[in-house]
Amino acid sequence: MVSPAEDVKLRVVADRSKCMGAGMCALNAPEVFDQDEQEGLVVVLEPEPSAEHRYAVRDAVNLCPASALRFEKDEA
């Protein structure tokens, strides 16, 4: 599990081909995730979530039933 430490730059990536529309992401981190109205699948609103949303995003990643979300460390 990636630590949501504030000094690491993290990107959150969503794989829409895995998304099953359970909505756990949009429920637990609504500032970062949404669902589109046509297909009901995940949309990332903030690919580089600010520090205040890191824990919510971590919860969303862990709670996603379809493993459609992941953190990536920025190689910058």
């Binding site: 099953m20 529309g21 909505g23 669902q35 109205e37 009901g40």
Partner: peptide, 16 residues
């Protein structure tokens, strides 16, 4: 399963 379920996903999105 995914093909059929996805016909319904937009009906149960959080904002709806």
């Amino acid at each position: 399963h995914a093909r059929l379920r996805r016909m319904l996903t937009s009906d149960f999105i959080i904002k709806r």
